[in-house]
């Protein structure tokens, strides 16, 4: 679950390569300012070492801290809200086994009015439903697993779905491509650019990075591939099944995946 959720892609301590050192502080540039993901290691003073399981589940599923503050939706609880309770429990149990990393990353540097944390409550009223993801009985079990991984823990849409002026994902343009949060290029439109790819091509690209035209997935996706390579092949096949089922929407991206 840790790798499906890609926790370390944002929370890793920058400047070192161990994905299990989660000191936080990697800068995420957005139109609202810069976010610095927090320390989610097991340190009791600086991180989540002293949080209860319920605290952690609340943060993951509802975007609320133990003090009752709203968390900024740069933390993808907008996707994690769909996670199954058993997966949340597994993830929490795993996070508990990781080393403590002391230190506090810089505070977020956001533009007014986004710097006012209370505003997130209003934002959540508008854009956050805090819901699970009931499976679709008309589709196969594999498709449903793929959708769960893509829309829930994998939070693919957080980069690949365009956002509105208030930074919420445009549901009707799901996975149709968007500028990526590290400020490097665009995440391609997954409803169109995969048209010529086979399911096996998608599985290959998600596990080794190699695309059918001999390219290697670059930018932020390289880290995602490192994570997804840890998943069983059946999970990647399910993701491929779901992605291939998406009807073409939005603008064709000039960026190839």
């Amino acid at each position: 679950m840790f790798f499906a959720g890609g926790c370390e892609s944002c929370h890793i301590t920058p400047g070192q390569i161990d994905p299990l050192q989660l000191g936080g502080g990697l800068k995420l540039r957005t139109p609202f300012g810069s976010f610095y993901p927090p320390n989610i290691s097991n340190d009791r003073d600086f991180a989540i070492g002293a949080w209860s399981d319920v605290d952690l589940a609340n943060a993951l599923l509802s975007g609320v801290s133990p003090k009752g503050e709203h968390l900024y939706p740069a933390f993808p609880y907008t996707s994690y809200q769909h996670m199954m309770p058993s997966d949340v429990a597994d993830l929490i149990a795993f996070l508990r086994t990781l080393p403590a990393v002391p230190g506090r990353p810089p505070a977020h540097r956001l533009h007014f009015p986004f710097s006012v944390r209370r505003g997130i409550g209003l934002w959540k009223l508008l854009f956050f439903e805090n819901a699970g993801l009931p499976s679709d009985p008309r589709q196969s079990a594999e498709w449903n697993l793929g959708r769960y991984l893509v829309e829930g823990p994998g939070h693919c849409g957080e980069c690949h779905t365009p956002r509105n002026l208030l930074g919420a994902m445009k549901r009707h343009l799901r996975l149709t491509g968007a500028p990526v949060p590290d400020g490097k290029g665009n995440a391609p439109n997954l409803t169109q650019s995969l048209a010529k790819w086979t399911d096996a091509d998608i599985v290959e690209a998600l596990s080794s990075g190699f695309t059918p035209d001999g390219d290697v997935l670059g930018g932020g996706m390289a880290g995602v591939v490192r994570n997804l390579a840890e998943l069983p092949k059946s999970d990647l096949e399910a993701i491929a099944t779901y992605l291939k089922s998406l009807p073409p929407l939005g603008r064709p991206s000039s960026a190839k995946p």
């Binding site: 490097k184 290029g185 665009n186 080794s208 290697v216 930018g219 932020g220």
Partner: peptide, 17 residues
């Protein structure tokens, strides 16, 4: 040989349009 591809593309390449 292959390990060279990804390392460079991760840091130095991203589609911008």
């Amino acid at each position: 040989v292959f390990e060279n591809c990804g390392g460079c593309h991760e840091l130095y390449k991203a589609k911008s349009s």
